[in-house]
């Protein structure tokens, strides 16, 4: 785990393997407006992200900021009118559409946002195992499922229940089991904690921790900064389709002075326990932004340059990145 990295010369330095490397990803949509006029809507721009084994990377952004699209891009399930640019490398191989289709639900799995994703007409067991024709294989999967159910505090008889017979918490645990059945290496959890009370939230985050402790890479997509801080190793902040900062989670502490981007600081200081401070303005739609920094209209530290060019995401320390003309070092 990156947290436990030991840099002393005498010890063996164990660098965790990079599972997924995303660079320069852009996602845009074609839309027809007013008859046959075609417009392009850029939703995600210039996205860079690394996920290592045993690491939880949180992607933090407000609703509608396009963060779920990243999950869809990695799984290869973007809609037909979209255009994906950039490069993704998974486990040393270029992750193209063919490989995505091969890996999804297998080495790469998704924990969907809502328990509504369960098929209401199918018993839980069948949904977790999936469609397997070979009887021997199915029996093996069944044994595997029972083992996984135990890890997620589900009784064996849940297998024969329909989703409507489950409580909200049980349904969520079934979704987690479903994502684990094929022993994935990379797990994408898309907003797994929407509106949960404290107890359920802790439980859900704990399951993600267990996955990371087993050596799996976890991408946690969320708008909830408190959930991200509780469980992740690294947090990427999304703003109007751009990643504006990637920082280690341990820096989201104290008075937040180790945070780099002004928006990240605003986000941190807006929490009730950190002052409940007010910052004016709204996130611009990506379409509204032309040649200036995306945070220009709200920024109090801006210089002349910020008004006519959008900065690149630059690495300022090992794994720590920032998109800002003014803040360039820790």
């Amino acid at each position: 785990m990156s947290k436990n990295r030991n840099n002393s010369d005498d010890d063996i330095i164990e660098v965790p393997k990079t599972l997924l490397n995303v660079s320069n990803i852009s996602i845009s949509f074609f839309q027809y407006t007013q008859g046959l006029r075609k417009t392009v809507l850029n939703v995600v721009e210039d996205l860079d992200l690394d996920v290592h084994e045993g690491e939880i990377v949180a992607i933090l952004g407000s609703s509608g900021s396009g963060k779920s699209l990243l999950a869809h891009a990695i799984l290869g399930i973007l809609p037909g009118n979209s255009l994906l640019k950039g490069e993704m490398i998974y486990d040393g191989k270029i992750l193209d559409q063919k490989l995505k289709e091969e890996l999804r639900g297998d080495e790469i799995s998704l924990i969907p946002q809502s328990v509504d994703s369960l098929d209401p007409l199918m018993k839980v067991g069948g949904q977790v195992i999936g469609d397997i024709e070979d009887e021997k294989e199915r029996e093996e999967k069944r044994k595997e499922m029972i083992k996984i159910f135990k890890n997620y505090d589900l009784r064996e008889d849940v297998i024969d229940l329909y989703p409507f017979q489950l409580s909200g918490g049980m349904a969520r645990r079934v979704l987690f089991s479903t994502s684990m059945i094929n022993d994935p290496k990379l797990i994408i959890a898309d907003e797994p904690t929407p509106g949960l009370d404290e107890k359920s939230l802790e439980e859900t985050l704990n399951y993600l921790k267990i996955m990371a402790n087993e050596g799996k890479g976890v991408i946690l997509i969320t708008h909830d900064i408190q959930a991200a801080v509780k469980v992740s190793d690294k947090i990427a902040i999304f703003y109007s389709g751009y990643v504006i900062e990637i920082n280690e989670t341990k820096n989201f502490s104290g008075n937040g002075d180790k945070l780099l981007h002004p928006y990240t600081r605003a986000l941190y200081k807006a929490l009730p326990q950190n002052g409940f401070q007010l910052f004016e303005g709204t996130q611009p739609m990506n379409i509204d932004i032309q040649d200036k920094c995306i945070y220009y209209d709200r920024c109090s530290q801006s210089v002349e340059k910020c008004g006519h060019s959008n900065p690149d995401l630059v690495e300022v320390d090992d794994g720590i990145k920032i998109r800002c003309h003014v803040v360039r070092k820790i």
């Binding site: 407000s62 609703s63 929407p194 007010l278």
Partner: peptide
């Protein structure tokens, strides 16, 4: 009823104030 649960922290402060 949970009116700012789905919003980011900055927007939450704006709305409540």
């Amino acid at each position: 009823d949970e009116i700012t649960t789905m919003l980011d922290a900055v927007t939450q402060v704006q709305i409540w104030k």
